[in-house]
Amino acid sequence: MTELKDKDQQAIIQLKDLSIFYGDNQAVNKINLDFYKNKVTAIIGPSGCGKSTVLRSINRMNDFIDILHTKGEVVYENQNILDKNLDPTRLRRDIGMVFQRPNPFPKSIYNNIIWGPKINGFLKNPDELVEKSLRRAALWDEVKDRLHDSALGLSGGQQQRLCIARTVAMNPSVILMDEPCSALDPKATIRIENLIDELKDDYTILIVTHNMQQAARVSDYTAFLYEGELVEFGETDGLFTNPVEKQTEDYITGRFG
């Protein structure tokens, strides 16, 4: 693995010997990985290598898959969040998630934003929150005149930014993104990428992508997974220009995947 230049980076999430199984089928094998605060970390690798599985373990969305079980630890705020006694709903307020396909609720744009804060009981100033969140997601100007229209009337790219806005409205510390642009056209993709760049001042972002150019453009650190194993982790610039592992080099030069 590459030596990290800035060793004083603070790890906000640590994967420790993380293994994940679907029944008898092991999808993730003993991964050790630190994610740094207020940085964008990209998880890359060919389809089926376990990227989404790893990401979903961080906000316990894997709980919904019956046959799945996990070994090892995911440490966040000095706690192993995989602990069965930990309340995953509390965790998910803090660690938000943006999905592969935009999934706005079949409600108004306004209600999409306030729903999370409302059910979690900290909604104080809805109008202000809606404006702030939509501005943060670079969507305000496009929707400010139709906040009470259905969110399903927005374009795909707008819907995805709305999903980012509703995540931001929860004021999380970490945002997980699972291939957030894979269902979008190139123009919408660029907008989301620019947005990620702005968001990292306030949030730690983990983004799964199988698009290497995207990883190179948006991330500070990159982790390369292959067949459930962590092959290489390092600063994005270094990893792309000077990979240590042969497999990484083959992958980023497009020899497979």
Partner: peptide, 27 residues
């Protein structure tokens, strides 16, 4: 009602009660 709605709601820290009565039922 697509599961994506349910997961989207859970990912915002919703409990089952909120997901069922705040999202799935209205939809």
């Amino acid at each position: 009602v697509p599961d994506a709605i349910r997961y989207g709601a859970y990912a915002l820290g919703a409990r089952r009660y909120h997901v069922v009565f705040g999202q799935v039922l209205p939809a």
